[in-house]
Design a protein around this nucleic acid. Structure first.
Lengths: 214, 214, 214, 214
DNA sequence: AATGAATGAGAGTTCATTCAT
DNA sequence: TATGAATGAACTCTCATTCAT
């Protein structure tokens, strides 16, 4: 029941389609990291190629050896982040010995990831305009994971029967706004997780909402 | 208990101190409407002043007679929309004869408004970068309404005791993602409300989650 | 028999379609002139918008108030030059009292124009790649004028019967390479016409070739 | 009287002084061929080194082992094509048993070559800006061939006395525009020669124009 | 002999904003 | 109150060329 199982990603290639040398792969990674930070800090439009390449320590032209353009880079970043949250959620869930525990840890995984990568939120939210297709794919992929988990839980009688699609989006919404409020907008230095009591209150709300037998 | 009661602020009707003539007010309104549509359709950056003034049928220079710049226009739009959703929610709530009914109708009001003004979502979500301060104010104002309502309901024993701040953000999250999924992303022509069964499933989830006594 | 009669051109407008103010028309003219010179001197690709606007004494952005882009400017220039050569040829021809004289003066008109506007050659020849469609239109329009004139001359028995389309292109070729050799490539300052004896030798060749009765 | 006899220059086969190995020569040839096609199809500026090396199947850096730069490559291509047209014309002429026949076949040779190598036209015409010096040399070399042939014909009384330089450029012009119109611009697949009747009409025009005794 | 990652100047174009009218 | 021509900085992207391997 690692509901958000992540497909294997293809090895990175250059714009011309050739596989990358070790050095090339390093450069590409530097660009991706710089871009993630720039997009998260300034937003899609203000994060210029100049800023990104400067931060990565390469020339402007170099950028186009590894990405087709700004848009494609952004898309790739969204896909990458999506893969990574889902992996974080799955890995969290896998730790649980009971299903109930697994679900709980999946949620925790989500918050832990967003605490460590606030860029997730900030990049995803821009996708509304910068890359609408990717945005929908992102939510869809997470929703699918929830739907699968919820359906299994219903079949086992762990939670009340209800439309899992509706519940899935409700759960995502809860996670999204709680995370936004207590992780993203909490200032001060360093990564910060959702405070325990907030998590507990939220999780209690969810369990009751789902009609959990326990 | 119109929880999101809107302060009776006068709509801004002056520029550089001088009050606006009737004609001026009309021009200003045309610009605001054009901007709302442009921002919603193209996003903050792609919605250029040229596009906006063209749609409003005025010259580019005219724009700067009514607004200090693009940013200030956007801020004003966010504030305006915020006022309008809150009024829609309050008005919904006011129709209810019991508190339970009021809450339910408040929620309905929110969905009705977003169905009629998809611009709300699309503009709010951009505010993350285009106007971070306004974004927080927007959510804060809605959360405050929920908090007040929830607190009252707890006091009356209608729902279980819990941290109303957490619940408020959870509820907003549910509304946001359900609306996004079933209003914003549902294509086809014309405004479209959340389907009934989705609303019911969602609302049942919420009631259970809040521990509503019925 | 002004065979290259020129259609009336529409009044110039701005990019947004509005008719131009007097000042606007002056700016537009300055840009066109600067562009003609730049294209003729440096060729399509080397003639950058920066060079053109600098020569015209306006900012880069101003360019786009009057033209959609570099390509469209170039096309317009080709159309403009085409119109002007044809007018020069027609006006030459109109001076002649007999048809024979008219033809001769039409040819003279062509050479006079190219002497005064070497840009014609240099711009037309680039059109091969910069704007293939315009290039064909240019030659076609001139050829049509020749065909009409030749047909009339055949009907009157002034020249031998032959395929006028072939003859037209042959005549254009003669004019083009003679002009290139003796006008364009002749250096030294100032405009320079084809030397008299060259013109006479060339024209004798043509008359014989056409089987002119005298 | 193979008027356009080509000097027996050895094809260039060295770089930086060192003679080329067999493999090197093959690579160099591949680059030249790729370049001819690229220049003909896209024009000087659009034919990038990337496109050329890609088409040739070598790395970008390899290019600079064989050529000093784009410009020099282009010059060499022009020289090469010039040599080849002239050879084609000479070889055509050599087939003729009488001078008259030789001249005619020389012309035919020109058209046959351009039919098989439309790149000739397209590359030459770009030379106006890409390599002005080469352009003049190209026409000069062909004109010289015509001049020699015409002078000989005049001495033999085959054609009327006239300035051979003027006639030479007139003839080149005729060939150029007829070829452009009926070879280059005739679409459809595959190489295409000038239609017979066009050739005949054109050639009759030329013979009359030259005052050919036959 | 060959590679291909890297460069950086320069291209065309957009756009918020100003200001003389 | 309204215009719209003009600005110029900033943008994304291309490309001939170099050079360490």
């Amino acid at each position: 029941m690692p509901a958000w199982q992540v497909e294997n990603e293809p090895p990175p290639t250059s714009t011309r389609g050739r596989p990358l040398s070790a050095k090339g792969e390093r450069t590409r990674r530097r660009l991706l990291d710089a871009a993630e930070e720039a997009f998260a800090e300034h937003g899609y439009h203000e994060a210029s190629i100049v800023k990104i390449t400067e931060a990565a320590g390469v020339a402007q032209g170099t950028f186009y050896l590894y990405f087709e353009g700004k848009q494609q880079l952004f898309d790739e970043l969204v896909a990458d982040l999506n893969r990574r949250v889902r992996r974080a959620m799955s890995e969290g869930a896998r730790q649980g010995r009971t299903r109930a525990e697994a679900e709980r840890l999946g949620f925790k995984g989500f918050f832990r990831f967003t605490a460590e990568h606030p860029a997730l939120y900030r990049i995803i939210r821009q996708a509304e305009f910068a890359s609408p297709g990717m945005l929908q794919r992102h939510y869809r992929a997470i929703a699918d994971g929830y739907v699968a988990g919820l359906r299994a839980a219903m079949d086992d009688g762990d939670i009340a029967r209800a439309d899992p699609e509706v519940l899935a989006w409700a759960l995502m919404g809860v996670g999204e706004l709680i995370g936004m409020r207590w992780i993203l907008w909490e200032d001060g230095p360093g990564p910060r997780e959702v405070p325990d009591h907030v998590f507990e209150e939220m999780y209690a709300f969810i369990l009751r909402g789902l009609g959990a037998s326990r």
